[in-house]
Nucleic acid binder design. Sequence first.
DNA 1: CCGCATCCGAGATGATACTG
DNA 2: CAGTATCATCTCGGATGCGG
Lengths: 139, 139
Amino acid sequence: MEVTTVDNQAAEIQAKAKKIIASRANATGLCPVRDILGRIGDKWSMLAILHLGSTDSLRFSELRKRIDGISQRMLTVTLRTLETDGLVTRTVYAEVPPRVEYALTGLGQGLLGVVIPMGSWANAHAPAIAEARQRVAAA
Amino acid sequence: MEVTTVDNQAAEIQAKAKKIIASRANATGLCPVRDILGRIGDKWSMLAILHLGSTDSLRFSELRKRIDGISQRMLTVTLRTLETDGLVTRTVYAEVPPRVEYALTGLGQGLLGVVIPMGSWANAHAPAIAEARQRVAAA
DNA sequence: CCGCATCCGAGATGATACTG
DNA sequence: CAGTATCATCTCGGATGCGG
């Protein structure tokens, strides 16, 4: 066989892509891929997951300081959604003043695991994409 | 050292998450992670990439048939954006009737490589997330 | 066949002010 | 400190009709 390793990988990737596409319309009537993307694809979810993933747990105000530009409202909404999806835990301490800690669940850590490669890729190839945009803008 | 392999991996993941977060405000003034997510996080880009990744190339009408529910307008807009970012190529054949072929660039295939694990994860854990939502809805 | 331009509604996002 | 409530805004995406 004269098939190279690269060709094998390429074929394998095509096969995986087909498989993912094929998995449309599950029980909820929505393609899982689009569903998940709809969540982490919003403006803040992924950042929240990355920040929570970079430590063990964070409280509300600390998270807000770290996620630059997020409003109080959107942080609340984002965290609630992530909690609903079972990706983060929310722990309230009955103290004065109140304290609320957020942390990733096992599920959330799993998602973090697949999100990180994407973040790394984004960092690595941001220059290439910026360059491609320049080229078009110049034309 | 009594540190387990799992603990090592966890620590490594935290470190990677920190690294990704730290890379904010590049030349374009935008965090690369948010930038990329803004692209593939929209309603159709990721599906287009997956479909293009499952074959060698596709023409406009074929792509439209495969991506269920997409409007002509959004397919055009999505493909143009991907082209601008250097993720897909657009080849026009001067025939009657016209024919336009789309295919992933090397950059696009790289993105496909990190997107597929996410798709696989989404498929694998969609039930868990659905269950988490049920639990909240019941409460 | 392929794609652009225009209009428009829905949902996401943001600013601000107010509570336990 | 950690939200909730309300209102204003803004972008996305869909429908439609025209052009190459």
